[in-house]
Simulated scan of single mutants.
Amino acid sequence: MKVFAVGTIINPLTPEQQQQIMPKEVPDTLQLYLDGKIEQFWFRQDRPGVIFLMNVASVDEAKTAVSELPLSEGGFMTFELTPVGPLAPLARLIQKQA
């Protein structure tokens, strides 16, 4: 299943907090990528945060994965999780051949 995880910074980090947290946040995020749970990732352009396209078995699995990231655990970032799938109505455009 695919899940968009839209992360928003809700409590900006001080420079000292960045020095403490980011050395753990980056490798933990990359590990989710290497494990195949994060398929793609982007920085948000509208506000501080990230967007992950996740490949997981369930929304609960995505929730667990992002909630264990240091920024989430520390109360600095929250995630909105949205499951997505194929655009099913497009099938109507395909002519069935006999």
Rank of each mutant, 00 (worst) to 15 (best):
residue 19 Q to T: 10
residue 51 I to Y: 08
residue 7 G to F: 10
residue 37 K to T: 00
residue 29 T to F: 01
residue 2 K to H: 15
residue 50 V to C: 05
residue 54 M to Y: 03
residue 94 I to K: 15
residue 79 F to G: 10
residue 97 Q to Y: 01
residue 68 E to G: 03
residue 58 S to T: 10
residue 57 A to C: 06
residue 46 D to K: 07
residue 66 V to T: 09
residue 4 F to S: 09
residue 15 P to F: 04
residue 60 D to H: 12
residue 47 R to D: 02
residue 1 M to P: 02
residue 95 Q to P: 07
residue 79 F to T: 08
residue 88 A to N: 05
residue 61 E to L: 00
residue 31 Q to C: 05
residue 9 I to N: 00
residue 36 G to C: 03
residue 56 V to M: 01
residue 78 T to F: 04
residue 73 E to V: 14
residue 33 Y to F: 10
residue 79 F to L: 05
residue 29 T to E: 05
residue 79 F to K: 01
residue 66 V to W: 00
residue 70 P to Y: 08
residue 63 K to L: 04
residue 38 I to S: 05
residue 67 S to N: 08
residue 37 K to N: 00
residue 90 L to K: 10
residue 7 G to Y: 03
residue 25 E to P: 08
residue 98 A to G: 15
residue 82 T to K: 13
residue 20 Q to T: 13
residue 98 A to S: 15
residue 15 P to Q: 12
residue 59 V to G: 04
residue 92 R to D: 15
residue 23 P to K: 03
residue 4 F to G: 07
residue 63 K to P: 07
residue 52 F to S: 06
residue 41 F to Y: 11
residue 15 P to L: 01
residue 14 T to S: 11
residue 9 I to Y: 13
residue 12 P to T: 01
residue 67 S to H: 07
residue 68 E to F: 09
residue 11 N to I: 03
residue 93 L to P: 05
residue 47 R to H: 11
residue 64 T to N: 11
residue 43 F to C: 08
residue 91 A to C: 03
residue 84 V to Y: 07
residue 72 S to T: 10
residue 7 G to Q: 07
residue 38 I to D: 11
residue 63 K to R: 09
residue 76 F to E: 04
residue 39 E to H: 13
residue 41 F to N: 09
residue 32 L to M: 00
residue 65 A to L: 06
residue 59 V to T: 10
residue 21 I to M: 12
residue 73 E to W: 05
residue 3 V to M: 03
residue 49 G to A: 06
residue 26 V to D: 04
residue 71 L to K: 01
residue 41 F to L: 15
residue 77 M to S: 02
residue 84 V to T: 14
residue 62 A to K: 03
residue 79 F to Y: 14
residue 81 L to V: 06
residue 21 I to G: 02
residue 15 P to V: 02
residue 47 R to L: 12
residue 39 E to P: 10
residue 6 V to S: 01
residue 56 V to K: 00
residue 41 F to H: 11
residue 1 M to S: 10
residue 65 A to W: 05
residue 48 P to Q: 07
residue 90 L to W: 09
residue 47 R to N: 12
residue 89 P to K: 00
residue 27 P to V: 09
residue 11 N to Y: 03
residue 46 D to S: 10
residue 32 L to H: 07
residue 43 F to V: 12
residue 62 A to N: 03
residue 10 I to W: 05
residue 48 P to E: 04
residue 38 I to Y: 01
residue 94 I to L: 15
residue 67 S to Q: 06
residue 76 F to H: 15
residue 35 D to A: 12
residue 54 M to S: 01
residue 42 W to T: 07
residue 88 A to T: 15
residue 80 E to Q: 14
residue 28 D to H: 14
residue 27 P to G: 00
